[in-house]
Design a protein around this nucleic acid. Structure first.
Lengths: 135, 135, 135, 135
DNA sequence: GTGGTCTAGACCACA
DNA sequence: GTGGTCTAGACCACG
């Protein structure tokens, strides 16, 4: 019955990502950093939609993707909960997709003519939030 | 393996990027790594379109974006040439866009539950191609 | 330009599966049996929706899931194509999902009090379509 | 490991099935394997609901479906008992529903690109629990 | 109350 | 022309 304290998901109009993706990223981030632990309940589709003043279908679609990816699990009629962590993708697929992310990042560094060392330094700092999930 | 002066731009059907973006990325990459030096001439719109068997409009649009970004300059009636390097974006804008790229990368690391150190190591290796432009 | 001959996807109102799922199953079946080979183009979202007289969004969602699962890949502005086969899920995840399917089947055999040997025989026959993909 | 006469029905939150279905499946399984024999009494609606800490309505609905299917029979004021086995569905209907189950299984084998022989082997093993009801 | 599915129609990016 | 995203509102199953 008790919600998991606050889950202040925010959407930003200035953000280039579609709002569904913002929700997905935000939820994954909270799980990865330990702000949302396995078993925690998520805000209801309708509730979050109302809070963010967006369409419930957009929230439902985001939750559906997170469920398909194994981050959440639905308990019929009760709501959605954070699932136990499990390895869903094959190593090859993970490496393939990381390859794409790396290529994309490299292309952006080039496009901005950004100093590679500085890019690495900033990225290293940004990844620090994942260091310990026992936040 | 060593790429020299020619510009063997390849487009890959399996690539998730739209082909216009593939061209842009490829040209910027060649300039950034020194494979294309300032003053070098690019293949004509029609020539490249024919070579890649794609729509000339797609090539023209890619070249237009590269020109707008300051990578290329057109010499009327002669064709497109690699421009002298210059700073186009403000520092603030560059930092803002690098921020976006970093956030995007971090989100992918999270989504894949990829070991951050390994991601950094692979990225570092990928960025090595930019180390010295005097290749 | 040329479509891959006929792709007579059918939806049945009597089918208990939602129509989106019917599309997904049908496309996967055609790929698995070799009726659709890697590189083949699929009917357009709007085209298939019109042919089946259903909403284009339903088709789009089905195609999106097939793309997320790695069966299809989209080429911007050109359409959707059958992707090269690749192993996307980890072995553990595949075994876990097969476990669920087996449990579900066993429960149905029990519910119908169906002779297990006969169930196995019929299933064996149904799986025969996968024997050689070079149909 | 060996299950005897008690009826230690368990519901699992990680199970994708709704809990009402879990109850139905569990009871049918126990009857099919002989763990529950004709004439045996089932836990009361309220008792089971309390034991599983779920809504009594859910238990009542599950029992109602099992009664409708002919697995249980109610003796007014005394409770619910396992019924004598009887053929409820026509052969045609049983075959039709087995068809659906088979199709569903085949679709999952395809979706997972799971080796058919291995799927059959695992299923055969899972069905072994039904071999002799005189366990 | 919860999520899951479907329909309808709009707007955008890409080619 | 293509797919991708979002909104709006309806109906169903589950608890």
């Amino acid at each position: 019955m008790a919600r998991t304290q606050a889950l202040p998901i925010q959407i930003t109009t200035g953000d280039p990502r579609p709002i569904g993706r913002q929700i997905i990223d935000a939820v994954r981030m909270r799980i990865a950093t330990g702000a949302l632990r396995p078993g925690a309940q998520l805000p209801s589709v309708r509730g979050l939609a109302q809070q963010l003043t967006i369409n419930p279908n957009t929230v439902a679609k985001a939750y559906a993707e997170l469920t398909a990816e194994g981050w959440l699990e639905s308990r019929q009629g009760l709501g959605l909960y954070v699932a136990e962590p499990r390895q869903r993708l094959s190593s090859a697929e993970r490496d393939r997709r990381m390859d794409e992310a790396i290529q994309s990042f490299v292309h952006e560094v080039i496009a901005l003519d950004y100093p590679p060392e500085r890019a690495m330094a900033r990225l290293d700092k940004a990844l620090a939030i994942l260091d310990r999930k026992t936040a």
